[in-house]
Every structure is written in C-alpha cells, then in structure tokens.
Design a protein around this nucleic acid. Structure first.
Lengths: 131, 131
DNA sequence: CCTCTTACCTACTATGTCAATAGGTTTTTA
DNA sequence: TAAAAACCTATTGACATAGTAGGTAAGAGG
C-alpha cells in the first residue's frame, strides 16, 4: 500500500510542475494549495531534495523547484524514492532476503510477473501525464 | 506490500490444491511442508474458514480441505480476504474515506487505473495456474 | 545592517500493524 | 478412553506510519 509519503510527494511534484515558471515555489504555498500540513511536507520534500528530484533555496524568494522538465520525471522514480521500494512482496524488495524456499517456491514466479507489471506501469507514466 | 498473511495463505491454498484427494489435510503436515510455524498458520487458516474458502474438521483424521476445485479459486479473492483489501492507496481502500479533494484530486485517476490493473491481474489468475 | 522569510535540522510521540508465540479447550475418530 | 486434530483467547516485541514541536541557518529587500 502506497503511504502518504508517496502520495503527498507526488502531489508536491505535480504542484511544482504546474507552477514551473523558473522561480522557487515556497512550501507554504504548496501546503495551502494541497491542504497538507507544511511541517509534514518538510520531511517529504527533504527526501526529494536528497534524492535529486528537486532543488531548494533558502531565504526570501526561496522555495523549491523542479530540476528537469515535467516530462523527464517518471511516477515510478518518485514513488520508489519516497516509498523505499515499489516491490509488492518482501521476497523481492529486501536485498539478501534469505528465504530457504527461493528455488522451489511456487508463488515466486507470480510475484515476479506482477512486480514487472507494476514497474512497467509506474515507470511508463510521466509526471506530465498527470496534468 | 503483500504481508505474510497473504503470501502464506496463498501457499496453504496451493498445498491444499496439490493434496486435493477429498480427505482432510492436517495443518501440521502443511506447516512442515511449507516450513511455516503451525501456530501462525492457525491464524491465517481461521480467516480462510470464516471467509468460506476452505472447510475444517476437528478430531482424528481431521484437517482442512478445499470447498471448490482449484480452478474455481482466484488468487485475487484469496489475497483480498487475507489482506483486507487489494487497493494500493487508502483513498480507494477505505470505505467512506473523507478526502476533501476527492473531486479535484489530479492523482486519483491514476490510482484508479492502477487499481484496475492490479485487480485484473489477481482476479484473472486462478489457483490452478500456479501449480 | 537589520529584519523578514524561507529552507533546513533534530528530536519526539501516539497509534497501529506485523509476525509471531503461548497455553489452553473442544471436537472427533479409532 | 486416549490420541489427534481444530479451535479459541490473549500477549508481546519490533517496527512503521503520520504526524508534531521547536529550533538554526541562509538569503533577499528595505
């Protein structure tokens, strides 16, 4: 299940895309428009800066803005950054997952197939597709 | 993310399908074959009985067995029962989810589309397809 | 230079879910 | 009547979620 981090983060990205005039957009404005606590958004936005999705600028006239054009972002990379993984089962998400049944598991192929579908969907969807 | 309840439950269903000779299969045997704690499986199996997926019988010679033929079960209904929902976002999963942005939310259509894909995948997959 | 605005930072917390474990009672068959 | 099995209630440690609180640092305008 996609948490608020992923959902809110995507909405912030969308908001930035819709106000993408080159200037920095204050988080306060985004929080008001999106009706989300600014304090909580700070946590989310921080991750997006660290992840190289957006850039921030302090001081008056500061805020956040996109680094690339909206069509150069995929929903997949945004969600993956904020959720930690897009995988639907721990067997595939966790590195070095030591399940003794890896080889013989009869459900694993299905999870892999499903994961491929999920991946294709979100990485095939661009930020600009949502506007 | 699909939890162990859904994953283990599916494996129990698969085990029952593979030993589907009309007799009751003791949980002890399933637990040993699947290498999962029997105590934990009790919780999962209970849900499956209550959900009408399988039937149990107490006493010597008892255990659990399928009610329908393996091809009459979809993976979707099994997961949905054990996970509570198959929806990927709270906006769609929770009944009476009172989001004030329901009407104007620009990400909701995407979640709906994705949910449809997930639904189609799991409800199109039969238990017998996994054997 | 000062002040206002804005990002940036660390810490805390309540609540809930997950993944089991523990120890019993009831039912049924041989 | 004894064994085997389901069935039942309760508990627990660890972790994640969804925030809140209270600050510090940076930068632009007057």
């Amino acid at each position: 299940m996609i948490s608020t981090k992923g959902r809110y983060g995507l909405r912030v990205m969308l908001d930035l895309a819709q106000h993408n005039d080159g200037s920095y957009i204050p988080l306060k404005d985004i929080a008001e428009r999106q009706e989300i606590s600014k304090k909580y958004l700070e946590i989310i936005v921080k991750k997006m800066v660290e992840g190289g999705l957006i850039v921030g600028s302090s001081g008056k006239g500061g805020g956040y803005k996109l680094i690339r054009k909206p069509e150069k972002y995929t929903v997949g990379e945004i969600l993956n950054l904020l959720e930690g993984t897009l995988c639907s089962v721990a067997c595939l998400a966790e590195k070095n997952y030591n399940c003794p049944r890896k080889k013989k598991c009869e459900t694993l192929p299905m999870w892999k197939e499903f994961d491929g579908i999920v991946h294709d969907y979100f990485y095939g969807k661009k930020l600009s597709d949502l506007i």
